[in-house]
Design a binder for these strands. Sequence first.
DNA 1: CTCCAACAACTAAACGATTAATATATGCCC
DNA 2: GGGCATATATTAATCGTTTAGTTGTTGGAG
Lengths: 131, 131
Amino acid sequence: MAKRKWTTLTEAELRLMNVLWNKGEATVGEITRALPSKLNLAYNTVLTTMRILERKGYVRHSNSEQGRAFIYRPRVGRAHATRNAVRELLRRFFERSHESLVLNILQDEELDERQRQRIRDLLDRFDREPQ
Amino acid sequence: MAKRKWTTLTEAELRLMNVLWNKGEATVGEITRALPSKLNLAYNTVLTTMRILERKGYVRHSNSEQGRAFIYRPRVGRAHATRNAVRELLRRFFERSHESLVLNILQDEELDERQRQRIRDLLDRFDREPQ
DNA sequence: CTCCAACAACTAAACGATTAATATATGCCC
DNA sequence: GGGCATATATTAATCGTTTAGTTGTTGGAG
């Protein structure tokens, strides 16, 4: 009942998705080896998380010919996942107001004058090339 | 080891913090009654979550005089919590680039021309009144 | 002073995320 | 085809979140 359809990616899940988005497709072994070695995750750890991602609809696997291992592919693009995350943030903290979020970003004291200028340029460019 | 200092607010925690931010201070009972009645959370549920929030450093309680119940107060402001959430999103999905996030917001197809204009106005206003 | 209602402390169950050990299957080299 | 390396399946331990029951404490009404 009232189960979220999207289910935002967790930290560990996002790590695996990044590998998959970069590679386009990969086996569990390939993903495991592609992860930062400082994490040192076991093959089975990655496998379990891949199954969770599959249950959540983020990836699918094909019982590949010419090899024993399953091949996993993203079912949701990075842009789509990103947009979901932004929408989630908007819902939680900004009452869905994009403007409030932009204002917050501009007010962040870690944002210096040069970065603000770049954002302004970005807006101008977007004006000139409407989507 | 390597314990997060900030620890982003969860959904249930944020609900309680919103009440506290609005009221300035409150007892557990007051918070419980202030929550949307459709949630119908038990007093003990709220109490437990308040203790977690205290452990995380988001609230503190004072052993109040003139009353039996503890009085809880925010130790972290809404703006601060919001900024942490935005930074977390930036780290996860935008490699800490504010510009990328702004671009993403502008490209969101749910954002119409009027809303874009409002964001532009916001930027202009921010230019005229530098922080 | 007694007792009830409100409160706090403790405990824990249900659940998901994260991690991994163990067990089983299978392709391939020789 | 026997056995090693690699894969997948099963299982579960650990932890945090969310929810709430039970028990003990206390302040105030009468």
